Amino acid sequence: MVRLPLTPEEVARGQRLGALLRRARGKRSMLDVALAARVSPETLRKIESGRVATPAFPTIAAIADVLGLSLDEVWAEISRPDAGDAPAGSPHGARERLAS
C-alpha cells in the first residue's frame, strides 16, 4: 500500500495533538500513560513529538481516556490552526479563535 504524503495541515494538526497530549500528561511519566492506554511508549513518544501526525483513532481514544480528555476536547483543540499559540482557556487564544 502506498501512503500519500501528509499535507501541511495534517502535519500541523499532528503537532498540536502532540502538544495537547504532553500538556495533559503533565508530570506523569510517558511509560505510565502508555502502559495504562495499552500502547507502546515508543508510539506515545512519536505521537507527542508529532512524528506520527495521523495516529489511529483507537490509539488516540485510549490515550485521551487515560489522560481524562474527551474526544470532543481533543478535536476542538487540534482542529483550530491557532490552537497551539495560546494555552487553552486563555483570553488571548479565545479572542484569536473567535476572530477566525
Rank of each mutant, 00 (worst) to 15 (best):
P5N: 10
P5Q: 10
P5K: 14
L6M: 11
L6E: 14
T7C: 08
P8Q: 12
P8N: 14
E9Y: 07
E9L: 10
E10A: 15
V11P: 01
V11F: 06
A12D: 15
R13T: 15
G14H: 09
R16K: 14
L17H: 00
L17Y: 01
G18T: 02
L20W: 01
L20D: 00
L20S: 02
L21Y: 02
R23G: 02
A24H: 03
A24G: 01
R25W: 03
R25P: 02
G26D: 08
G26F: 06
K27G: 02
K27D: 10
S29R: 15
M30V: 06
M30T: 05
D32Q: 12
V33W: 00
A34C: 07
L35C: 04
A36W: 03
A36P: 01
A37I: 00
V39C: 02
P41H: 09
E42I: 12
E42H: 12
L44H: 04
R45V: 03
R45G: 09
R45H: 11
R45C: 05
K46C: 08
S49G: 15
G50M: 11
G50N: 10
V52E: 11
V52C: 06
A53R: 13
T54C: 08
T54E: 14
P55W: 08
A56Q: 14
F57I: 04
P58D: 10
P58Q: 08
A62H: 05
A62R: 15
A64L: 00
A64D: 01
V66R: 02
V66P: 02
L67W: 02
G68M: 09
L69N: 09
L69I: 12
D72S: 04
D72E: 04
E73K: 05
E73Q: 15
W75Q: 05
A76D: 13
I78D: 04
P81V: 08
P81M: 03
P81S: 10
D82H: 12
D82V: 13
D82N: 13
A83Y: 09
G84F: 07
G84A: 15
A86L: 06
A86K: 06
A86V: 08
P87W: 07
P87D: 14
G89R: 07
G89V: 06
S90P: 04
H92I: 14
H92A: 15
G93S: 10
A94H: 12
A94Y: 09
R95K: 13
E96M: 13
R97A: 15
R97K: 10
L98T: 07
L98D: 13
L98G: 03
A99K: 13
